[in-house]
Design a protein around this nucleic acid. Structure first.
Length: 225
DNA sequence: GCGACAG
DNA sequence: ATCTTGTCGC
């Protein structure tokens, strides 16, 4: 599967878009059987957007962290909506390459299938490493959904032109829903189950919240951003 | 005026 | 940390 990424992340916009369209056909939804280790992957940008800090954490089902990796890399292609993967790709890969034992499922910041070309960051990562991935985003990039009920666990499908591409999921009382979509190698109901079982007291699944915090700390430790 | 299109 | 309002840009 890595064959499709040999050109790396620094490719022209049209090439990245073409690659996303091709990759979207490779995304495999399927039930996730039992899982033990869940990981979170998050990142932050420098103020000028030219550098990216990424962090990955692996946790067992009880929430004990067994691995933490933080790294930084230049941004090869400045972020634009729809091409997040190409901005964070190098930093993210540096992090994931240091995690020897792949987790059973990876929660990624950003979208998976809920993407204009059905190929968000979580899909890229799932395909590269051939692991189940879930996209968790703060807000919609494409599609729409009905209002979500107030209780934690309530959700509504996110649809684009009648196609269900994800779910808006209430994870906490009083917090806006997060947008969950599959990345690769699992189905939407499995993804929702993993997210809900990983939420403790934040709007975000715990590994994701932890990873984002680490990435922000790493950025804060650098004098010039 | 109207929308802000993932981070 | 999140939400909401305001502001900026198109």
């Amino acid at each position: 599967m890595r064959a499709h990424f040999e050109e790396g992340w620094q490719v022209p916009r049209h090439a990245a878009i073409a690659r996303q369209i091709m990759l979207s056909g490779l995304v495999g939804p399927r039930p996730l059987e039992g899982w033990r280790m869940a990981a979170g992957l998050a990142f932050v940008f420098s103020r000028d957007g030219q550098r990216c800090w990424a962090a990955g954490v692996v946790a067992d089902r009880q929430g004990n962290y067994v691995r933490q990796v933080i790294d930084a890399a230049p941004v090869p292609v400045s972020y634009t909506a729809g091409l997040l993967a190409y901005a964070v790709g190098p930093a993210v890969q540096q992090v994931l390459n240091q995690i020897d034992e792949p987790p059973d499922v990876l929660l990624c910041l950003g979208h998976g299938l809920a993407h204009p070309r059905r190929c968000g960051l979580a899909c890229h990562i799932g395909l590269i490493y051939d692991i189940p991935t879930i996209g968790c985003a703060q807000r919609l990039l494409i599609g729409e959904h009905k209002p979500v009920g107030p209780d934690p666990g309530a959700g509504e499908p996110v649809a684009d032109n009648g196609e269900v591409i994800g779910a808006a999921l209430r994870t906490q009382c009083g917090a806006n829903p997060i947008i969950v979509s599959i990345g690769h190698n699992l189905d939407l109901s499995s993804a929702i189950a993993v997210v809900l079982s990983s939420v403790v007291e934040s709007r975000w699944p715990e590994p994701l919240r932890c990873a984002r915090q680490l990435a922000r700390q790493a950025r804060a430790g650098c004098e010039d951003q």
